[in-house]
Amino acid sequence: MGVADFGGEVKRERRGGTRRRKKMRRLRYRLDMTPLVDIAFLLLTFFMLTTTLITPQVMEMTIPPERTQVEVRQSELLTVQIRADGKVFYNLGTDAPQPITLKDLEALAVRENVRLQNRLITVLKASPNVPYGAVITVLDALNRAEVQITEQLAREGLRRERRFAIAPMTPEDEQAIAQL
């Protein structure tokens, strides 16, 4: 193991010979690569197994700096509510809340936003007891809708301006959807 072999021939000791051997010609230079390859593979295995290629991504959030009451037209308000068990409800304006699946919510957000051309304000209210993951899932559905909204509004020559807010859920809100 680990022999660097120069020329492939071993110089034999001369035994009393008077005649000088012909000068050996170095034909090839051969280096035993085994230990090098061993180490290279070892390191490669280590880095392959310890690397996680998936880096976390982010979801950007903007919240209004002040907690002020803004007068909005009820007809231009889409309220999305998440109940403590993770069920999602929506209502437009002062309508009664209705349960909705995420897929439908995405389609609804697209439809209503395109219809009202940027005037729609989406408000998300989540119960304090709902798992945080469920809130992100709903936010993600709304974000996905955003792509289609931007595209469809662009077709009408409009620039998308997102109006979105997160609001705390009041006990009255909670009561309204408790029995649904």
């Binding site: 991504q57 982010v58 979801m59 950007e60 959030m61 903007t62 700096p65």
Partner: peptide, 10 residues
């Protein structure tokens, strides 16, 4: 600090 990020996994 009204602009922040939620860290998520894909």
């Amino acid at each position: 600090a009204t602009i922040f990020n939620f860290v998520t996994d894909r």
